[in-house]
Design a protein around this nucleic acid. Structure first.
Lengths: 335, 335
DNA sequence: ATGAAAGCGCTAACAT
DNA sequence: ATGTTAGCGCTTTCAT
């Protein structure tokens, strides 16, 4: 293969047709294996050879513009805001959708307003938008997408979102699971870490609310603890925890919890002896640190299940509901 | 805003033109703020109002099909194979390119062959493909993209890739930095963790090669240690390390290293007393675990710098070279 | 200052 | 069994 520095004009299906000595329609039929068209094997071979020789790559946008169909699935997701739990799951979903013929693309938008973000996705005219862990799929955002012809709008929310296929899952239940676990172990003066990093409030606020609800039921006391994700902030907070006389901390997620747990140990506070610590997400990190970290674990629907639902939504406009996301504390050494 | 369940046919610029009482050309001029066209303020206002009222969202594919330009940048990246170091950096790059008017999209393809993957990206006719940490941007893959009209093909590699804007960075240097550090601390019987997970060989093999090179220079001995990313595998490997009489381990990256370090401690092996441990990527994890983990740190070019280079490449077809990626061991308690 | 019309690369009726 | 043709939604000369 010769490597030319300056490639000629882009190869189109017309070039392939010319070289193969057939029409553009025939090229389309052959390369897309259109079932309704009967093309002789000889012609097929000629077309494929020509395409191969020219290095022809179809123009996805042109094809979908004409056909009115699209195989694009947009996953709105900011890579760095995603825990390892989610990133593994996103990977599986990508594979599952890929197997079903979709082109999956992650779109990490940074715009604040839900409708603005939705418009950015809608410009691409995707067949589906699957929003996991992004709290910004409001009813209006859904309308923008639907209006742009998006067949499947999937989102996670604590209650059904109008027009969208909603995966029910309430972040408050993370707080509930954590506090129930701690109360069950006799803890009553409980701190709840609130990350200072932007974009995490959508998760931390409901978790705190869930924590408060359960604590009230059991006569336990909740103290919100703002914390930045850094060594120094963890050290300062560890000191504060001791001064406040807390006997437990729910650390928002495993990363914050592990950071704080290490800082507590550095200050001579016994974990879980004096202060119990609970994380969330059940990352491998929870098993890497010592003491091993008790963590609230997600139970997400399987990626294949969700991919099937998306496929159904795109083809038939409807799909059977999926089981809700639920949460469970996995007890380890830290509590 | 009324939420209709079944949206009508998609709104096109023709609808906007009709409502505003102007031609489609005028709509295009107004919404794209075309400098060469002089449109009266009154008309502009009318058009914008009509677009707003109809909830018009432009069809990106149609626009770029006609104009021959595209603002799409594809970042080939498998989310889960990306360390947190890279994910933060990818986030910044996304922002930087977004600020320059590009639509950034992560494409986590799972196909093995470089050319197949390149074809999948080329179907989208992106303006640029920026491949970080994906070792599969071969010269042929670059040609496929160039041929499809991709203006900027950027990749990381240990040596310039023909036709691509290459960011020089050699994974072997990660191994070099780790082993030089360990040898400098008097260690001579060194294990190198080789992750069993698929897709990581592209990184682990060169790191091992770099480690071997430096070890040979200093009369140290290298033992490759296959390991899966799990608690059990780490436990088994910890036992093996002791049996082999190793005095140091380079743990591939911080995650594997931390897992192994904890397993060693569980077995009563003193870290760093009996066995020193070094990771890579300099994640916050390295500061979360105890003993704090020595780690090899990347020095990547700033995201803004790279975004500028991409922009230059797209507009002018050329850009000034960027400084090479280099590596440095950050000493902490584990070595 | 605005409109008419051509055409980007492709697919899908409809012809042949 | 294959070719002809008419657009998909948009941008962009060229006219007016």
């Amino acid at each position: 293969m010769s490597l030319e520095q300056s490639p000629g004009p882009p190869v189109t299906s017309a070039d392939v047709a010319r070289l193969a000595g057939v029409s553009r329609a025939t090229v389309s039929f052959v390369l897309n294996a259109t079932p309704s068209a009967r093309i002789s094997e000889a012609t097929k071979a000629k077309v494929r050879a020509a395409a191969e020789e020219l290095g022809y790559v179809p123009h996805a946008a042109a094809a979908s513009l004409r056909s009115g169909r699209t195989d694009l699935v947009v996953l709105p997701a900011s890579v760095s805001a995603m825990g390892r739990l989610f990133s593994d799951w996103v990977d599986e979903l990508e594979t599952a959708l890929g197997d079903r013929g979709y082109t999956v693309v992650l779109h990490g938008d940074r715009s604040a307003a839900p409708v603005t973000a939705a418009r950015a996705w809608a410009r691409l005219r995707p067949a589906a938008v699957v929003s996991m862990g992004d709290a910004r799929m409001t009813a209006e955002a859904v309308q923008v997408l639907l209006q742009a012809g998006t067949k499947a709008v999937v989102t996670v929310a604590s209650a059904p979102v109008e027009g969208a296929f909603t995966l029910i899952g309430d972040q408050a239940d993370v707080g509930v699971a954590a506090i129930e676990h701690l109360v069950g172990r006799g803890r009553t003066r409980i701190g709840v870490v609130m990350p200072a990093e932007r974009g995490l409030a959508a998760f931390s606020e409901p978790r705190l609310a869930g924590a408060r609800r359960v604590a009230a039921e059991h006569g336990a006391e909740i103290t919100p603890l703002p914390m930045r994700y850094s060594d120094e902030a963890a050290a300062a907070l560890a000191t504060l925890c001791r001064e406040l006389g807390l006997d437990a901390v729910f650390g928002y997620n495993d990363e914050y919890a592990a950071l704080l747990s290490a800082a507590l140990a550095d200050r001579g506070v016994a974990v879980p002896g004096q202060i119990a610590v609970v994380g969330a997400d059940d990352l491998l990190l929870a098993r890497v640190v010592r003491p091993r970290l008790t963590s609230v674990r997600y139970h997400l629907p399987g990626a294949d299940l969700l991919a099937d639902a998306v496929d159904r939504l795109v083809r038939d406009g409807a799909a059977a509901p999926l089981p809700a996301i639920w949460f469970e504390a996995v007890p380890r050494q830290s509590s």
